[in-house]
Design a protein around this nucleic acid. Sequence first.
DNA 1: TTCATACTTCGATCATAATCGAATTGTCTT
DNA 2: AAGACAATTCGATTATGATCGAAGTATGAA
Lengths: 235, 235
Amino acid sequence: MSSNNPNTNPNITEIATLIGDPSRIAMLISLLGGKSLPAGELARAAQISPQTASSHLTKLVEGGLLVSEYYGRHKYFRLAGSEVAHALEALQAIAPSKPVRSLRESDRLKALHFARTCYDHLAGKIGVALTDKLMELKLIEQSGKDFILSEAGRKKLIAFGVEVDGTTGTRRHFARQCLDWSERRHHLAGSLGAALTRRLFELKWLEHLPDSRAVRVTEVGTRGFAEEFGLMDIQ
Amino acid sequence: MSSNNPNTNPNITEIATLIGDPSRIAMLISLLGGKSLPAGELARAAQISPQTASSHLTKLVEGGLLVSEYYGRHKYFRLAGSEVAHALEALQAIAPSKPVRSLRESDRLKALHFARTCYDHLAGKIGVALTDKLMELKLIEQSGKDFILSEAGRKKLIAFGVEVDGTTGTRRHFARQCLDWSERRHHLAGSLGAALTRRLFELKWLEHLPDSRAVRVTEVGTRGFAEEFGLMDIQ
DNA sequence: TTCATACTTCGATCATAATCGAATTGTCTT
DNA sequence: AAGACAATTCGATTATGATCGAAGTATGAA
């Protein structure tokens, strides 16, 4: 020691200080799955006001733990990289054993991975699979951060009962791409995604699980997805 | 959502808060090499008064990050386990690279990057290179977050004088992967990593640099690494 | 356009905790 | 024994930063 001034790395202090706040931890843990979440949802997750959340999120981005991206008036945040997730897990590892993670919780988590609503549209394994299928059938195609609905797609979806409401492709946020945390792939969002999802509930192909964003594919749905879209292996 | 109260784990918050203090970080980093140090020395390392240090150390022990032991009128502290070291290194990995102040500092940093002990095992360029070589020689192989010691590996290491102590592969944390902040690669940790490192010091292939976690490869070691493991370019 | 929503900035309040001086306990040395 | 040293406890000070209300900006919807 002696001459050694191991006051090394103000950096690691900064990082640890950044992590060492209850509200910020709550947000970070919410993001641990890899999903992007908007500021508002993170505020709710941490049970703090939007102002406070904004302040925290700014710090987390400046500290290099998060990155952000605008989607319209929403600002989405996600972990800056796998190292961040790794560090959080390493901290979990020395945190005293968690208060009884119930089996029910684990089940709910599995359900969330499989299918869930993301606000108003469909996400999870099913959301991604359906989106893939729509692309495969050339009903939609990628275009920057959006999807474009093809003429064939428009006809097909209208026939299916979706309120496509006029304009085919170019309106802003008509058919957004939304990054899926569980699948790490994009699924269909935007007003078209919402309308399609609405229709799926209407047809009772899908139903909500109680008290959750998770979604179940019904008997009818399983058949329907196969017959209408050639989507097998659903459930 | 809704019924979901993601105010999860006050534990991890506590741990991160504990780590997120400049003085405590300084002490923890001083202990990263795996040594036990008395309170007074830790106070000097953190450049704070003994009173303040005492307060911090009490908290670190209560938080489970350190353990203490009396030796006469001195009280020695050391890291509570390899998980703590692992978490600290994981934090280092996301800490932005430091602005190097002095030449001496740069030298010390280089030494740390080259070879250092991480609690009880070997890290840095050499730690990673050796781990790579062991994989190349099929003495160990990756398996999730662990390594598995092959039968050939077991024989080789026993012949080399490492106390492999029975069970070959499956024990928990027997051969952990540990993310290296300087190399951004994995190196061998766990009890096997510790045993191997112990043997390397025993053979005097490695020696500690004074006042540091840094490690030097000796003359004998340079030859040894080349002959036994085909590890060239050491140094 | 007007209205609602999502987020940010500013300012003030308030609680937490890091810090050290002073005094105390316990241990080692002489 | 006395004196020095190591660590701790207590108390007071102080600075940092988390928090939210109020107001402002930007986007989307009607």
